[in-house]
Design a protein around this nucleic acid. Sequence first.
DNA 1: TCATAAAACCTTTTT
DNA 2: GGTTTTATGA
Length: 770
Amino acid sequence: MTQLDIFDADPLLEGLNPQQAEAVSYRGQALLIVAGAGSGKTRVLTHRIASLIRSREAWPSQVLAITFTNKAAAEMRERAEQILGAATEGMWISTFHSSCVRILRREAENFGFTSSFTIYDSHDSRTLIKRIIKDLDGESYGCTVSGVANKISRLKNELADVDSYARNINPNDPNEVKFLEVFREYTRSLQSANAFDFDDLLAQTVFLFRAFPHVADVYRKKFRHIMVDEYQDTNHAQYALIHELTRECADGTPGASLTVVGDSDQSIYSFRGADIRNIAEFERDFPGAKVILLEQNYRSTQNILSAANAVISNNFDRKAKNLWSASGDGAKLVGFTGYSAHDEAQFIVDEISALHSQGVGYNSIAVFYRTNAQTRALEEIFIRSALPYRLVGGTKFYERAEIKDVICYLISIANPADALAVRRILNTPRRGIGPATEAALQLFADQNKVSVREALRHVDGLGFGPKVTGAINSLSKLLDEAAAMVDSGKVSDVLAHLLEKTGYIDALRATRDPQDEARAENVEELLAVTREYDKNNADGTLIDFLTEVSLVAAADELDDASGTVSLMTLHTAKGLEYDAVFLTGVEEELLPHRMSAGEPGGPAEERRLFYVGITRARKHLYLTLAMSRAMFGQTNVALPSRYLQEIPSELLDWRQSPEDLQRSSLGSGYGSRSLGSSSSGSGWGSSSGGWDSLPPSPRPKTEWANRVTNQIRDNGDLELHAGDRIRHVDFGDGTVTDVTGVDTKRVAHVRFDTAGAKKLLIKIAPIEKL
DNA sequence: TCATAAAACCTTTTT
DNA sequence: GGTTTTATGA
């Protein structure tokens, strides 16, 4: 049989294009699949796995597939099951972090941890770092919580531990010495709490493999076929982990085969240590590696792809790649400029309603934004319009204080060494144990080299008052009771017992704060979650439950059948796709975000983020912005994003362009204001390119900058007072009800005769006093 | 110790 | 605008 015959005969290759088919069939040590957005990489990966199993080249247990989110893992497992049925059992399909937890739980005893270790999220890490900085007087040496947290995270991602870092510091710089001291104490605290932070999960697994080659060999022999998705967003620790796993064993067993999939144009996590070089230098790292390019896009219309290609081509340090589609031009992109974020949101809501009446389901529509703060205006309008929506990510359920409180009870039982958890529940709900008592308990624990949990048992001799002593004793007794239930009982039983005995929910309901009722409901929701967990995981342990809770990602919460519009950040949107996408806040300072301007590679990464957003859309893509945006409760003038003019004008249909607003604001001299496609020849969307490569300042403003910035309507110091009558270009006549703010930030609250109540920025609103 | 009030920070993006 | 830290008094 020739190779072609095999292709023809294999149903797994049916319907695949030649590149995809080759990516499924290629056999070799190392394979890099450069997969453009929407090029069917998940399909290729699952078919590749299926092909390995079907041909008996691998047992399911020999496959390790790493995805970016738990949801992507579940989806891949599901798709593989559709092909292979039960044969997927025993495969490891999960995220880097989940895989590492699984390995660490098995091997923790090798290096001073126990299998019941807890996982600290970034919030927990910060709490601990804050405490340490305070104890060691780090403030006097320039240690800030976020500074230290970021630095430690960066070091761990680079696989530096305390001792290796200590060798490289300048011992004469007191600030560096103090940071080292904090870092050392942080590491010590984690160890004594039997806890790992997020970065540890990766780094400690690498350390484990390096320190115990025979342990590493166990996993090297087990995993013969390793696949890594979203490889462009791996950091150094993840890269090193893959290297360790694909290494040759001590007994000469050859390294596993490695397949990575990625697209450097979609690398958007460098702030988290992702190193684009991992994918750029793959061929050098794995000599003899095969590279396959997938450029045909099966997701979007050609118009959307052309816009995406035009935008990303402005990043100069990339390998040329052109996505193409066979599915026709499709609709033009739609642009809209609102007066305010609320105006922008109103357009989105109206447009979604229109789409919905045309038969587009709510769950195939998504709204993206750069920062979480943008959700406020969107939510207000969505609620007012009774449009079903869901925030993906947002303030996450498991990060709410009341949920963390309750989780810490469970942690205190599962991992009594965890001082952070025990100290959190000491006085929640209130039982009269204050900071002084807490500190005394910690001191006793430190002096006697026991855990805080253990200190609670020896409280009688510590000289606390009878009330405090009694409270601690009963808490300790309760924890013992609950711990006794863990082995036999279900997670929900343990939690129910704890909630009942602590009266946590009742304490919430007893307060006058109206939000506490919602908090009580959240806790009840958590109880429901544990019941659900018990039902679905007959032999799931408390530790397993806590692990799952620690590692949920924003995109994991997505419910495909929810029938709601999804709202999420551009980062969360990666890997997802929708029929209709609204990309909001396409403004300077927001997209690209102002914080990115100073960072090396920042502007290019922002452009990739915009590119990721564009390529999520199948059929309809809307780009929206606002002329003014509230930030920190203050309203500021916003400028259109530079990216807008990187999109060829013939692809973009402005319902209301920034110029339309200027023109109407100025009121005369620019001809009549026309809705519809008004931007032709205006410079909007015409490609002038090369922003990142502009020299520092000689040509500070290009065409549009002049047009827009210099033509912002300026009403000067127009005086308005409650009771004044005004006329607005769009909203007609109305009465001013109130004026707030000062100076250029003055806002008029106006009740329009026909358009209802609006807030307008007096300085720039297209209004005149009657 | 705790409740309320004033004040100070804040916003990138997240496993 | 909203959260979180600090000040103040009961």
